[in-house]
Amino acid sequence: MITATLNAYLAISALLFAIGFLGVLVRRDTLIIFMCLELMLVASTLALVAFSRFNGTMDGNVFVFFILTVAAAEVAVGLAIIVAFFRKRQTVQVDHIDALKN
């Protein structure tokens, strides 16, 4: 029986992180890549809270605040960039973002 130990939470966090990373690797739609990035961030917050809970400290919990804020800021700016790119190239496929090739 899988009990809710620290190991289990960390395993879940790692699993989520891996899924998110895989998504970033294989998906070609920029927006979906972004969502997978967010998934990775959420995974890291889960790990932090788990550690904080099991160590009895507040540091992990408080750090989640900041991660949340930074994630929000990142999403805002990233999406603005994507919109600007879409205006120029009419596509958000990652394959087409290759102006830096060679």
């Binding site: 690797l25 294989v26 990652v94 973002i97 830096l100």
Partner: peptide, 10 residues
């Protein structure tokens, strides 16, 4: 520098 995002990710 292939210009593809996925390559960099790899």
């Amino acid at each position: 520098h292939v210009g593809r995002l996925s390559a960099y990710l790899y």
